[in-house]
């Protein structure tokens, strides 16, 4: 499997992401600079977290128009796999490669704490490392993570099994209106979604930061082992 991690000016979780892939594959992914427009030969492109272009204007808005995103879009249209985490998720929605948008957190403050996620997405390499309905812990670190979309789009996402992850309690209960569970106020507690072909995935929390016991646990590891098993 060949993985590329896109670096925009202001990206800051590319090293975390590279480390998580190294933990499962022993191989360091390739870093891709935002101005390059060729992504040939890759199996997976990752848009990591950070503050691309300072997140000035809107989170992810400027990055969505950078040269590499044209290449990423073509890559996805040809069936390539794309994962966006945190700022990467914001960029994918701004680029309209995923539906919906990420608004400011409901409490109007940056949130940096662990949340629990319920695995709901089906038929996707991004959820295949877990069993359907599994609950795992992941750190979140964002100011704009409040997912929203038009009601019919939310219905469609749910109907098509494209809600990849949902915020929940440690026991797996989803509570949309509980600020301690659905901390950023996301519509229907949605933390991550899949594209129509299930090959593009975006999520707000950071499984890449929980991939070793010494760093607080391995709850995030199945994301990477699932991808590895699928793409070899």
């Amino acid at each position: 499997m060949k993985t590329g991690i896109v670096v925009f000016p202001g990206t800051n979780r590319e090293r975390d992401m590279a480390q998580a892939f190294r933990v499962v594959s022993g191989k360091a992914p390739q870093m891709l600079w935002h101005q390059q427009d060729n992504v040939d030969g890759l199996d997976l492109i990752v848009l990591p977290g950070g503050f691309s272009f300072g997140d000035y204007l809107r989170s992810g808005a400027m990055a969505a128009h950078s040269p590499i995103m044209q290449a990423v879009r073509r890559f996805a249209e040809k069936g390539g796999y794309v994962l966006g985490v945190c700022n990467g998720f914001q960029i994918l929605t701004e680029a309209q490669m995923l539906p919906g948008a990420l608004l400011r957190n409901a409490g109007m403050r940056f949130l940096s704490q662990d949340c629990h996620l319920k695995v709901e997405g089906r038929d996707s390499i991004f959820t295949s490392g877990w069993k359907h309905g599994d609950v795992f812990r992941a750190p979140m670190a964002h100011g704009d993570g409040n997912y929203t979309a038009a009601p019919d789009m939310l219905d469609r996402l749910e109907g098509e099994g494209r809600v990849a992850f949902r915020y929940c309690t440690a026991e797996g209960h989803v509570k949309d209106s509980d600020e301690h569970v659905n901390m950023n106020g996301s519509a229907r507690s949605i933390a991550g979604v899949l594209s129509e072909n299930r090959r593009v995935c975006g999520l707000m929390p950071h499984p890449e930061n929980l991939t070793e016991e010494i760093l607080g646990g391995t709850d995030g590891l199945p994301l990477f082992t699932g991808i590895m098993e699928a793409l070899g």
Binding site: N12, R13, R15, D16, Q19, A20, G49, R109, F110, L111, S112, Q113, P139, A141, H206, E208, N209, I214, L215, G216
Partner: peptide, 28 residues
């Protein structure tokens, strides 16, 4: 307070705020 600070970015944080008497960060 510390829930408004990103304490995990960098991927080396071993003890986050409140976990130990000192913060602990692994040397990459």
């Amino acid at each position: 307070i510390w829930n408004q600070y990103d304490s995990g970015v960098g991927g080396q944080t071993v003890q986050r705020p409140g976990g130990a008497d000192s913060a602990i960060v692994r040397v990459e």
